[in-house]
Design a protein around this nucleic acid. Structure first.
Lengths: 343, 343
DNA sequence: TTCCGGTGTGGCATCGTTGCCACGTTGAGG
DNA sequence: CCTCAACGTGGCAACGATGCCACACCGGAA
């Protein structure tokens, strides 16, 4: 900056004003300064700026697993919006591990980020950010209603959509393959599954709610065991794309004819679901858009459009059901078990 | 920091030494300072540190499209390594657009990042970073041999592997669906395709090299037109996962029986390729690992393990061919065209 | 002529950290 | 008893950018 000032024959203050546009600067001086800056390749130091202004243009984004297309899409949506608003994204994977999440929180706090968008794992992380005065947006699931805004899919509505669809096809023994129900995402999906049953006057068979771990292989094994134990099951609803992948691979391995022998539906629409045959009926969360909305909510706080200290906002992104070939009419009673065993 | 100093009854200098471990600090003082810092939740300001130390722990990562699993895997690999080395990742999508890439370069320069890992679009961006004294690692493709290190897959070897595989199955009219050959990635794949033909003494029919744009829908259309124009084609090699997706969807739409009527192979192994039936024969680039290697190469420069001003390094990640169901014996001459038209 | 508001500019303190320097203090060795 | 090295500590000047303040100049109004 001193170099630019010297070359342009002005003071550092004037260079600052000329380049930033804050304060007076004569037209010719402004031009000269810009020219010199461009010539010698001067780029203002963002760290010095952040230090002086006590705010940075960095936003922390904390997700579980970038290799899962759900999180990748979410991050991509966030990044697109942030970038167009002049912010950039510090992306950290926490692998769903609270310890890593807490480390990332420390990092973000140290960087004095403008805000953090997080698919939260533990309340402590969100609380800690809040205490450090960092704006937080909880994405996809909400772990604390008091600390920071949230942008969520309507998991209950989505799960109800897909469950109702299955019920309408005549299915009465619908298995639910799910990994967790302690977060709002899993809890909502379970609630929607129940609500659809209740609305249809169909009892929920608790044995058909199969808990598994967040891992395609484990999900496949769990789904397989469930089918073995309960040959009367006619449909399976996998609560997210990873579980669906595991289940689908397992059914393929077993040579099941979908949807004749078994209907399968999923939550989360990811590209492979339209490529496989039959294509998978699923609930789209509009994940990319969800990400953009997260960024919007954060940017609204930063710009003061919403009071910095206003009450927490909750934005819902409505899900949509995409019916594809993997769900079909339930087979007439009595034929199902034999059908599957015959193969 | 002043607060901590006051509470602990020492000076700011001592707090700095006690917390950072650089320089002397008595054991009891060190403990007291740590205790106070933890109690009042003091986290050193990373911006002030970067300013003072003239270096940050941020690494810029510049990719084309986070929603493409190839780039997502790459970024995930990079992030994992960076994180374990105490760095973090500023992730920017440039959508394959040189303008956006240049903007990101400006941002990274302003942030005084420790280094940049980029899947480059234009030489200018890489040059510009180099001129600003930023360490650059070119990932997946190399656009400048002079500016910065590179970590690349061996595209020629990979393409040769898959083409040879098709030739060995008796295919002689193998279409190549490719989007660009101006980057080392595309050029290498084309070269490998030619090399395999040459090694087998099979002539390359230049009309079977179909150029398309980087877009699944366009790739599908191009592949369709090619098949219509050349019913004698018995195999198609798609030069990346997006093109393969477009082509596969198109063939599925046409109801082609794979691999009987047409064999299809791809470059890049992404999850859907194992889920569809037939599963797709493809070349794995070990993308996640590629990302880790990129980070390794950068970290080696930063740690001084490789001289800061040493010559550019080039690291190759060997690809591997995964043969799956989508490639089969070429049908006997004379049957192919009729087969396809019959449907 | 004096006063005043609008322009335009430079000086300076400041943001939070760090590392050099100078200054104790201590204990061992000559 | 003096010297000297090894510790430990505080003061201070940076790192680069910014914005307040003071000041200087100008034209117009009183």
């Amino acid at each position: 900056m001193q170099d630019v000032a010297r070359e342009a024959g002005v003071s550092a203050s004037t260079v600052s004003r000329a380049l930033s546009g804050n304060g007076y600067a004569a037209e010719d001086v402004r031009k000269r300064v810009h020219a010199v800056a461009a010539r010698i390749g001067y780029i203002p130091d963002a760290n010095a700026r952040s230090l002086r202004n006590r705010s940075s243009h960095s936003v922390g984004v904390l997700i579980s697993d970038l290799r899962n297309p759900f999180y990748a899409d979410l991050a991509a949506g966030v990044e697109q919006r942030l970038r167009s608003a002049g912010y950039h994204m510090i992306l950290v994977n926490d692998d769903g591990h609270a310890g890593e999440e807490m480390l990332a929180v420390q990092t973000f706090a140290a960087m004095r980020v403008a805000g953090v968008i997080v698919t939260p794992v533990s309340v402590e992380a969100v609380k800690s950010l809040h205490q450090h005065g960092v704006h937080v947006v909880q994405a996809d699931r909400r772990i604390s209603a008091r600390h920071g805004d949230a942008v969520l899919g309507d998991n209950e509505a989505g799960a109800e959509l897909v469950t109702r669809h299955l019920l309408q096809l005549g299915h009465r023994r619908i298995a639910l393959l799910i990994d967790e129900t302690k977060w709002t995402s899993g809890a909502g999906r379970l609630a929607g599954y129940r609500a659809a049953h209740a609305a249809a006057g169909a009892p929920v068979d608790e044995d058909l709610i199969a808990f598994t771990s967040f891992d395609a292989a484990a999900a496949g094994a769990t789904a397989g065991r469930l089918l073995d134990a309960r040959p009367d099951v006619t449909a399976l609803f996998a609560a997210n794309n990873v579980l669906a992948q595991g289940a689908f691979a397992e059914f393929q391995r077993r040579g099941l004819r979908l949807p004749d022998q078994l209907s399968i539906a999923a939550y989360d629409d990811v590209p492979w679901m339209s490529l496989v045959r039959p294509a998978i009926t699923t609930v789209s969360q509009h994940t990319f858009d969800l990400g953009r909305r997260c960024a919007d909510v954060l940017l609204a706080r930063l710009s003061g459009e919403y009071a910095e200290d206003g009450p927490p906002r909750l934005v819902r992104v409505e899900p949509a059901l995409f019916v594809r070939g993997s769900t079909g009419q339930a087979p007439p009673v009595g034929e199902r078990a034999n059908d599957r065993k015959a193969r």
